[in-house]
Structure formats: C-alpha cells, structure tokens
C-alpha cells in the first residue's frame, strides 16, 4: 500500500523513492501543537514520516478552531496532544506517534529532543523558542524556526555549527509574546508558513544541507523574500560551535 499511497510525491524528482525512504526513516519532534505545530504534524504524517513526537500542555479552546489542524468542536476542553495523536494515527497508522503532555523547558528538553533527527518549531512565544535554540545547539540538532503574525511569517532552517541560529541575528530570547487572539493572525498565513516549514524540513532531511536563510512571506500582499543571515562568531549560543 505504501508506494501507492505516496505515488504523487515520489513522482516529484526532488523527493523520488530514495527521498521517501528517508522521510519514512526519520524521527521528528513538533514543539507546540497550535496553528503551525498542528499543521506541520498533519503534513508530516500524511507524507509518511516514520516517527513523530508532539509536545504541548494546552487544551483545545473555541478560538483555536479557525486555524488549528485536526481539532473539532467536540474536542473543546480536551488535551491537544491527545486529540492530535488520535487524529494522526487515523491519518496514517504506519507512523509512530509519541504524545508528550508537557510544556518544553530547560528541565525536559534534553530528554525529549535527544533522540530525534529534526525539531519543528510550532511554538508561540520567545521563551520556548529560546529553549529550542539553546538545547538544539548543545545537542547539535537541526531545527526549523517558524513564526506567524497577522498576514506574514518567517521560516528558517537552523543547523548548529553550520548556519546562523536565532541569537545570531538578534531574535528576542525571552517573553511570552502576544496571544493570537490579541495580535491577530490570518489562518491562511499559518498554513502557508507551515507548508514552507515542512518543505524546508523535507529538503534538509533529504539533502542534509541548508544555507539557513530567513524566508519572509506575506500572504496578503503577497510577498516572499529570502534574506541570508550569516553566522555571528560572537553569538552567545552558537559562536563556539
């Protein structure tokens, strides 16, 4: 069943059966199961990723339903990771789904992230991204940064020791940020940024390289810019790698 299931994507020369095999052998972690995280997880599982670890301690709220993948009205009040795990296994029973009902912190990040091949950022605050940035550098784990607000967002592949990290270009390293219900976000921007992030991840898993540019996309204008971010040798997080 598997090859038939993935026929349309293995027909793409950038993936091919050899790339599909890599996807199926990969283990990823998705930190945060909100708008971007749930979309990213669903896409990865549909594409056949071998193992996925999803991490979040939130419950589903009515204000999530306009943009967050997989959650439905009946799920309000339930834990995001529990609902997501069930839905992901319904989408693809071949994928191993590991659901962790916790908020990522410096206390648990090593244990959660040490066994995965790639980390996907689905977080919604500076504190959590700083945990990913610092711990991924220490563990030498590649990760994909995403952030969305209003009609636009960012995506960047970060390979510790090879590309710049978040601290290299002055991205804030602390703070809760502003809730989506206050700052506002267009659901289509979340899906677009999530799609770019998964594409970046698949490219990295198959080709094992990236220049680590910052991709800026605004779905309303629409605009897409790609800006190089050189490594900062004095970066306090990755300068010594």
């Amino acid at each position: 069943m598997q090859m038939e299931r993935y026929l349309s994507q293995v027909a793409v020369k950038e993936i091919f059966p050899s790339g599909q095999r890599i996807i199926e052998e990969s283990s990823i972690a998705v930190i945060g199961m909100g708008g971007t995280g749930s979309s990213i997880a669903e896409m990865f599982v549909r594409m056949g990723v071998g193992k996925i670890t999803i991490v979040d301690d939130d419950k589903i709220e009515p204000s999530n339903l306009n943009r967050q993948a997989m959650y439905k009205e009946d799920d309000i009040g339930l834990k995001k990771v529990d609902v997501a795990r069930t839905e992901l296994l319904r989408i693809n029973g071949e994928t191993q789904v590991n659901a962790i009902d916790k908020r990522l912190s410096f206390n648990n990040a090593d244990e959660i992230l040490s066994q995965v091949d790639l980390i996907m950022d689905g977080t919604d605050n500076y504190d959590a991204r700083n945990v990913i940035n610092v711990v991924s550098a220490r563990l030498r784990k590649p990760w994909i940064f995403t952030a969305v607000e209003g009609t636009f967002g960012y995506v960047k592949t970060i390979i510790p020791g090879k590309t710049s990290c978040l601290s290299c270009f002055g991205y804030p390293d602390r703070g809760e940020g502003v809730a989506c219900t206050i700052q506002g976000v267009v659901p289509t921007a979340i899906r677009a940024i999530s799609s770019l992030a998964v594409t970046s991840a698949i490219k990295f898993l198959i080709n094992r390289e990236s220049q680590g540019e910052l991709v800026y996309m605004d779905v309303w204008k629409p605009v897409l810019d790609i800006l190089p971010i050189p490594r900062n040798e004095e970066c306090k997080v990755c300068g010594n790698l």
Binding site: G32, G34, G35, T36, G37, D121, G122, T123, D124, N125, Y126, R129, T146, A147, V148, E149, F152, G153, Y154, Y171, P172, G175, E176, G177, V178, C180, Q183, V185, I190, Y216, L227
Partner: peptide
C-alpha cells in the same frame, strides 16, 4: 536597510 518586526506567534 530592511526593518522587520520580531514575531512570536505560531
């Protein structure tokens, strides 16, 4: 000179 806002949402 390009100026971007920092973004935290997701």
């Amino acid at each position: 000179v390009s100026i971007f806002p920092p973004v935290s949402g997701g």
